[in-house]
Design a protein around this nucleic acid. Structure first.
Lengths: 206, 206
DNA sequence: GCTAGCATAGACAGACCTGTCTGGAGAGGT
DNA sequence: ACCTCTCCAGACAGGTCTGTCTATGCTAGC
C-alpha cells in the first residue's frame, strides 16, 4: 500500500517513484472522492498523476475499471481504519462505541467528504459494478457490527447491529451534508442508549 | 402547484394539458430522481415532457434553474408528506414515531430511490445552489423534529432531534443502498428506545 | 551493445451535452 | 381582423468526454 511496496528496483533510487498504476490510483482517489466520479474526467486524472493516457487504459482497461479500483481501495482503507481503532479498546461494548469515536476522528480530517460509496452510487447507473462494490462494503460493516454485538452478549446481535448501522450512516451523512463533525458524538451518545437497552447489565469486575 | 392552478383557459378543455413549465418540471422530477442530475441531459427531459427546448430555457433559464425548481418541488412534497402524516397521531410522542412510519410507507413506493438532496449534493459542485437547497431542506426537517421533541417534553429537544435525525437519515440511506424498506421499522424501534430514555414518564390518562 | 517492454506526449475520432437561434403554428384578447 | 404571447421543431455552434492510435524515449536484463 505504501511507496516501498513496489519492486526491488526501488532500492536503487533513494526516492523511488511509484509506478504509473499507483500514481493513477492515488490521483483517482483524491479527485473522485473530492469532486465525484462523473465530474472528474480522464484528462484531469492523468494530468494530476503525471501519467500518459495510454498507461491508464493499459492498467485499468477503462474508466469503470479505475472506479472499481478506487472503491476497492476505499473499502480496504475503511476496513483498516476501523479494525485498527479497535485495538485501543478492550470490551466488546467499548469497541462498539469506539467505532463512533473513530468516526469522529475521520470527520475532522480536512478532506473528509462523506461516504465514497454513497456518493458513487448516487452517480452511477443502477445495477452496475459501483452498486456491487457499495453492497460489499456495507455487508462487511454490517457483519463487523453484528460480530461485535454478539461478543457483547446482545440477545439479538443482528437487530442491534442494524440500529447501530443506521446511526453510523446517519452520522456520516450529517457530517457531510451539515458540515458537522460532532455528528459522531451525537451518534455515540445515541448508541450508548441503545446499548444500555439491548445489552445485559455490565459485570462489575474487569 | 396542481393542474388547475393555471389560467381560466383550463375550464375550456375538459382535460386541460398542463403548461410546458409544469410538464418540464414533472419530467425533470422523474428523470432527475431516478437517474441523477448529471446523467440526465436536457434532450432527454424535453423529449419526455413533449416540449421544445426553447420552452425550457425560457421557463428556467438554464439547467441549473431546472435543478433548483426540481429540488424545491421535492422539498415541498416531502414537507407535505410528513406534516400530513402527522394528522393521524395525537400526542407529540406518537407524532415523532409517526415520522418513521410515514418513512416506511415512502420506502415501499415503487419508484423510491433515496433522498433526492443527498443524491444531488453528491453530484453537484461544492458550495453551489444544490447544497443550499439541501441545507434548507435539512434545516426544515431538523426544526420540525425539534419542535415535536419540545412538545413531547424533552429536556433537551435539540439533542433529541439530532439523534432522531440521524436515525431518519440512516434509514433513508439504508433503504436506498441495501434495498431494504424495513429500515424504517428498525429506525422506529431505535427511536422508541431513545424516546423512552429522553422523555419523562408518560402520563397515564389522555 | 542490443532488444524487449513499459512509459510518455499528444493527435484524433466519435459521441454527447448545453445553450442559442431561426421559423413557424395556434389561441385569446381587443 | 389583428396582435401578442406561448409553444413546437429542429438546426447549429462550441465545448467536453471517452477511448484509440502513432511515434518516441527510457530502462533493465542478456
Amino acid at each position: 500500500m505504501t511507496a516501498t511496496t513496489s519492486t526491488a528496483a526501488g532500492a536503487a533510487r533513494p526516492a523511488a517513484r511509484p509506478s504509473a498504476r499507483e500514481r493513477l490510483l492515488t490521483a483517482a482517489d483524491e479527485l473522485f472522492y473530492r469532486e465525484g466520479v462523473q465530474s472528474v474526467g480522464i484528462d484531469r486524472i492523468i494530468e494530476h498523476a503525471g501519467v500518459a493516457k495510454a498507461s491508464l487504459y493499459n492498467a485499468f482497461g477503462n474508466k469503470e475499471g479505475l472506479v472499481r479500483a478506487y472503491l476497492e481501495l476505499r473499502h480496504e482503507r475503511n476496513r483498516l481504519r476501523v479494525t485498527r481503532a479497535m485495538t485501543r479498546y478492550r470490551t466488546p461494548r467499548e469497541r462498539l462505541l469506539g467505532v463512533f469515536e473513530a468516526q469522529g476522528e475521520l470527520f475532522t480530517t480536512p478532506d473528509f467528504n462523506g461516504c465514497a460509496f454513497v456518493a458513487a452510487s448516487a452517480e452511477a447507473p443502477h445495477g452496475g459494478s459501483v452498486e456491487l462494490a457499495a453492497g460489499e462494503y456495507r455487508h462487511w460493516l454490517r457483519g463487523f457490527l453484528t460480530d461485535l454485538a454478539a461478543e457483547a452478549g446482545a440477545p439479538d446481535p443482528e437487530a442491534l447491529a442494524r440500529r447501530l448501522h443506521l446511526l453510523y450512516d446517519g452520522a456520516t451523512l450529517s457530517a457531510r451534508m451539515d458540515r458537522d463533525p460532532t455528528a459522531a458524538a451525537t451518534a455515540r451518545a445515541a448508541a450508548v442508549t441503545l446499548l444500555d437497552a439491548a445489552l445485559p447489565a455490565e459485570p462489575a469486575g474487569s
